[in-house]
Nucleic acid binder design. Structure first.
Ligand SMILES: NC(=O)c1ccc[n+]([C@@H]2O[C@H](COP(=O)([O-])OP(=O)(O)OC[C@H]3O[C@@H](n4cnc5c(N)ncnc54)[C@H](O)[C@@H]3O)[C@@H](O)[C@H]2O)c1
Ligand SMILES: NC(=O)c1ccc[n+]([C@@H]2O[C@H](COP(=O)([O-])OP(=O)(O)OC[C@H]3O[C@@H](n4cnc5c(N)ncnc54)[C@H](O)[C@@H]3O)[C@@H](O)[C@H]2O)c1
Lengths: 224, 224
DNA sequence: GCGCAATTGTGAACGCCTTCACAAACACGC
DNA sequence: GCGTGTTTGTGAAGGCGTTCACAATTGCGC
């Protein structure tokens, strides 16, 4: 374990393993082999073991992995071992879905404050919270100390909101707006784009349909 | 252009290019070089050209790409040149956000029907639609002929819904539930997981914070 | 205590995507 | 028409993550 840079795909998979492990824990399962993890997660056993190897040894040969201990370990790696406060900006459709989402809790993620710039909305309750003025984001986060922020505002407002979040001390942004955000190098951004996902599916769904309809005329290989 | 298999990352980027091009078109821009696309999209010019090269030649050396023509071309590639009907299952929080989302239209994606299994909800209006019984999904899609489906139901119901969608002729599924779906090989699934995204951000956000706090003891390279 | 079966951890091979770099193509001005 | 400057398209190189394969480790039954 020589602390090489951890591939992002590995981190993404860690979150999946964690979900599987939490489910297993719920079911009273105490030990899981990489083979079984493959069953539940759809990720190959070899990949699982390789992923974990970035962070040290953990399983027992001939036995597998202690579910409970592995949960703790992954939570520590992902910094989900202590509660992570999150700032949400945009009290609209997406924002609504997020504040009411109970699964955050299981990962110790908590939306700690909601902001908007619509004076009609500011001051109103939103889930358990009161919508605050985005102009006060810095001030409010001085109390909270959140490092994570979610942008759920229209695209044209996303960049200024991002700037405000960075100003307020946020170093990780989950962006729902369809725009490229410009942020300082120490800030990480991940974009969520349903349209992009659907576009990829659209390509595949119809491509396959064409093939099925007896149009496999191109004598090529017929992979997946 | 020898019809090699197109990398999935290329398809994902095509959707990004499309958005940039639509914006440019809106602004009256007629021509764009790969260099300029890099500016707007954050994706390198070389990558852009390579991506397009999977589908044939298109730009003019010394000039760039015709915005309008390229939009048409990418739309055709992604099968967004004709309207794509979509089946939405789950008239809850996520479902609500989706039915009201206006941007789908710009990509010719249209939610053509909404399903639920809650008798209280079935028959009620939902956006422009009436919520239908999930039991009738096959029957309804015989009319619509949708190839794309969105799953926005609780995790424990996701698999049965997926089965029903596949039965109804869907070959591409966008899944919001935190579960691995088992589907036949001709069906494509893409998962959307906010928790996973936040977990990755959590790792980075705090890792960087540790480094900034003078703990850059590991003399490694300080990339992004 | 010892052999057998199961399972881990990881170097190495592999494959795929990205990046590089440059010849070919085009516009434009003279 | 021809030289100059720009930009494309794409083979080749490079980098990075995944898959493979196996030695090492542990539990368990006898
Ligand atoms: N609704 C969807 O299904 C969906 C899907 C994919 C992406 N998105 C994207 O997510 C974002 C939010 O979508 P939505 O449907 O929740 O939009 P929405 O219009 O319902 O909500 C946006 C909220 O942001 C607030 N806002 C606007 N400018 C602001 C600013 N400068 N500072 C703070 N708050 C501001 C508005 O007052 C509003 O409450 C959009 O960028 C949208 O493109 C939405
Ligand atoms: N709300 C969020 O912010 C959020 C975030 C990430 C993921 N998700 C996931 O998205 C999914 C939907 O979330 P939500 O907040 O919209 O949930 P929700 O409870 O608001 O809505 C779920 C809907 O699905 C319906 N349903 C249940 N079983 C069904 C079945 N067998 N067939 C048809 N319909 C059925 C319910 O009646 C309900 O209307 C969940 O899996 C959730 O984990 C939600």
């Amino acid at each position: 374990m020589t602390e090489t840079r951890v591939p992002v795909p590995t981190l993404e998979r860690l979150a999946i393993y964690l979900r599987v492990l939490l489910d297993a824990h719920e079911s009273g399962i105490q030990t899981l082999s990489s083979q079984e993890i493959e069953q539940y997660s759809g990720i190959s056993a070899a990949q699982f073991r390789k992923d974990l190897s970035y962070f040290g040894e953990f399983g027992k040969p001939g036995v597998g992995y202690s579910v409970e201990a592995l949960i703790e370990r992954i939570e520590r790696i992902l910094r989900l071992d202590a509660e992570q406060p999150i700032l949400l900006v945009g009290a609209g459709n997406i924002g609504s879905a997020l504040v009411g989402y109970p699964n955050f809790q299981a990962h110790r993620l908590r939306i700690a404050a909601v902001f908007d710039n619509n004076f009609v909305k500011i001051g109103r309750p939103f889930g358990d919270l009161i919508i605050e003025d985005i102009a006060r984001v810095r001030e409010v986060n001085a109390q909270i100390g959140a490092r994570l922020g979610i942008i759920a505002v229209p695209a044209h407002a996303a960049q200024e909101v991002a700037d405000a979040l960075v100003e307020a001390g946020v170093t990780g942004i989950l962006n729902f707006a369809p725009t490229i955000l410009r942020v300082p190098p120490h800030v990480h951004v991940r974009n969520v784009s349903f349209l992009q996902e659907l576009a990829v599916l659209s390509y595949h769904a119809v491509e396959d349909a064409l093939r099925v309809n007896g149009q496999a005329r191109r004598g090529g290989k017929d992979g997946v």
